[in-house]
């Protein structure tokens, strides 16, 4: 039987400097997109810590929310929001490429697929906002 993968020691690996992504705008934007996941993850951990405060009672929860009003946290959330929106938009455009939609034999234009995703995103966000406002105590 032939091995499905070639012997690794025979492969050629190009040597790349660690700063290759600074050379071109598109490479840099790619790295920024990768970095967006870091800010999203930190935000979610902070959200989890905030929810954890509930085990000490609602006062602890609201005190935590107030601490997030400090300039440092507002700046963090502003950066996180920009990265999150960047992730959303790049994700919708890449979904349109990876999962092309067809109507009969014709492919729906990718920009239209991305636009439909963005429309759905806005609707979903408004539904979450509505649910949050109607459920909050």
């Amino acid at each position: 039987m032939i091995s499905p993968r070639p012997d690794k020691s025979m492969l050629y690996y190009p040597k790349m400097p660690a700063t290759w992504w600074l050379r071109k705008r598109s490479y840099f934007l790619f790295m920024l997109r990768e970095l967006s996941s870091v800010f999203i993850a930190i935000f979610l951990v902070v959200l989890l810590v905030q929810i954890y405060q509930l085990s000490e009672g609602p006062k602890s929860y609201t005190a935590f929310a107030q601490r997030l009003g400090s300039p440092g946290w507002i700046i963090f959330h502003a950066i996180a929001l920009l990265f999150a929106i960047y992730h959303s938009i790049t994700w919708f455009f890449s979904t349109a490429v990876v999962l092309p939609l067809r109507l009969g034999k014709r492919e729906i234009p990718r920009n239209l697929v991305a636009a439909l995703n963005i429309g759905a995103w806005i609707v979903v966000s408004l539904v979450i906002l509505y649910l949050f406002l109607s459920l909050k105590g």
């Binding site: 935000f43 929106i85 959303s88 919708f92 995103w121 906002l129």
Partner: peptide
Amino acid sequence: AAFLVPIHI
């Protein structure tokens, strides 16, 4: 992350 995170931030 794309659909839900921004509104939560």
